[in-house]
């Protein structure tokens, strides 16, 4: 056996850990990023709420977080993570930095997706007597659904990348395996298997996202 040095059990455990990190962080990223993206869109110039100051403030905060390299953010956020989850290790220990690192990115994607919605649809909903929340929840979000699904897909792929990186500071998962066995102990076969698994995961996520986008596109 060429792959004699691989502990398949370890790889299974690592895969499950990666999936858990991905699922957990994606869920909270959307939960946090979607409202932020909606707020960005609404406060933007000539939009429904048109609040230049609020938009500028939010923009600066999100840009600042986005400009910090993720690996630095992981370290900087350790105290916050410990405060939130009680640990800075394992799956629970990486979800907060993953969410904080990715939510601003996702929020920008949401803002862009909402801007793609025909302004005429917003105007028509206003003319029917729709309130701002009705416009957002009954017109904007359903109309932007394909764009939003595409945004979630892109974000999920970025998160796969980040979970691998978080392996470096004890996050566990496939990235952790690749670094500890593949890189530090020169077990090239382990590195190859983990990388192949990550490639498969990204391919599946992207293909699934694309299918959903097509399914919901009515334009």
């Amino acid at each position: 056996m060429i792959l004699h040095s691989i502990g398949w059990d370890d790889i299974l455990q690592a895969t499950l850990a990666t999936l858990a990190m991905l699922g957990g962080s994606l869920f909270f990223t959307v939960l946090l990023g979607l409202p932020l993206g909606i707020l960005l869109f609404l406060t933007g110039r000539t939009q429904l709420l048109d609040q230049t100051f609020a938009y500028g403030l939010l923009s600066v905060v999100l840009n600042t977080i986005r400009s910090v390299p993720f690996i630095i953010l992981l370290i900087l956020l350790m105290p916050v993570t410990v405060l939130l989850t009680g640990t800075s290790l394992g799956v629970r220990g990486v979800i907060p930095p993953l969410v904080i690192g990715t939510a601003p990115f996702f929020a920008r994607l949401v803002e862009t997706a909402l801007r793609e919605v025909d302004r005429g649809v917003i105007e028509a909903t206003q003319a029917m007597g729709g309130s701002v929340s009705q416009i957002v929840f009954r017109a904007l979000l359903p109309e932007a659904l394909p764009g939003l699904i595409a945004s979630v897909t892109v974000t999920a792929v970025v998160l796969v990348d980040y979970t691998a990186m978080s392996g470096a500071i004890g996050g566990g998962g496939l990235g952790d395996l690749a670094i500890r066995y593949g890189y530090q102990r020169f077990k090239t076969d382990v590195m190859i298997v983990t990388v192949v698994l990550l490639i498969l995961l990204v391919q599946i996520l992207q293909a699934f996202g694309n299918r959903l986008v097509i399914h919901f596109t009515r334009k």
Binding site: D118, T125, M128, G129, R138, P142
Partner: peptide, 30 residues
């Protein structure tokens, strides 16, 4: 606004809703 209907040059229909859902839309909003 509910007692003033409006028709647009570029229709401004909701692309994600069917014909029936588009017509039902203002009723649901109200």
């Amino acid at each position: 606004r509910r007692s003033i209907g409006m028709v647009f040059q570029h229709f401004n229909l909701l692309s994600a809703k069917t014909v029936a859902e588009n017509v039902a839309f203002p009723l649901k909003l109200s």
